[in-house]
């Protein structure tokens, strides 16, 4: 099981770097969708006993992170008629290198963390830290509103990976509550992105500067 789990997490880490390295926003959305769907599979590997509740969690997570949220983002993207991220704060290559460095750092750092004995071999903790870091890089270096939202989703995916260690602590109801919050949050954000586009004729968040001291 650990082998399969680690292979999925390695793909997740590669998808992180891919999302940093492309200018086409649609590819970023698709990358994050694949990442979300892969993560949705994790509960199947981590539970010894299969139960209907787990099946429901898996199906909901995959549907939401892999299909519904990316669908909403692509619709928002079509409404605001943009295709590419223009001139990110730092170049694409630089951000990929930063992401790779972050991943290496996460792997080294997780080795030094005091982990429970049965978690030591799995990549869960380093993958979680690396994904959170990549989420932050996306959030900070991109200027288009939609790209920033993708950064938030990657960050959220990272936290989701860490949550895989704590199956008993997060009961089904709470797990669903977290997903519901994510869904409504993205829904509200998509509406705001559309309004930003209408009011400022652009989704560049650098134009949002009228409120300052």
């Amino acid at each position: 099981m650990t082998n399969l789990l680690n292979s999925i997490l390695v793909i997740v880490l590669m998808l992180n770097l891919f999302s940093l390295g492309t200018t086409r926003i649609v590819s970023v959305i698709r990358t994050v969708a694949i990442q979300g769907a892969l993560l949705g599979l994790l509960p199947l590997l981590l539970h010894e006993h299969f139960s209907p509740v787990i099946a429901l969690t898996v199906v909901t997570t995959i549907a939401l992170k892999g299909i519904v949220i990316p669908g909403m983002m692509i619709r928002a993207l079509r409404d605001v008629k943009i295709k590419r991220e223009v001139e990110p704060l730092i170049g694409l290559q630089t951000s990929v290198i930063l992401g790779a460095l972050g991943t290496v750092f996460a792997l080294l750092f997780a080795d030094r963390l005091p982990l429970a004995a049965h978690h030591a071999g799995a990549l869960i903790v380093p993958a979680a830290i690396a994904t959170v870091l990549v989420g932050f890089i996306l959030l900070v270096t991109r200027f288009k509103a939609i790209s920033q939202v993708m950064g938030y989703l990657v960050l959220e995916n990272g936290i989701f990976i860490f949550g895989m260690l704590l199956v008993e602590a997060m009961p089904f109801v709470v797990e669903m509550g977290v997903l519901l919050d994510l869904f409504v949050g993205i829904f509200v954000i998509c509406i705001i992105v559309n309004q930003i586009n209408q009011a400022f004729s652009s989704t560049d968040t650098r134009r949002l500067i009228s409120l300052k001291e």
Binding site: L139, G163, L166, L211
Partner: peptide
Amino acid sequence: IEATWKYMMVCSVGIALGLLGTFFLAY
């Protein structure tokens, strides 16, 4: 709109860190 956007993004990201903190507590 600008205020709402900042509110959503800053608070959502902040609170996401809170979720990570909550997980650390369980761990």
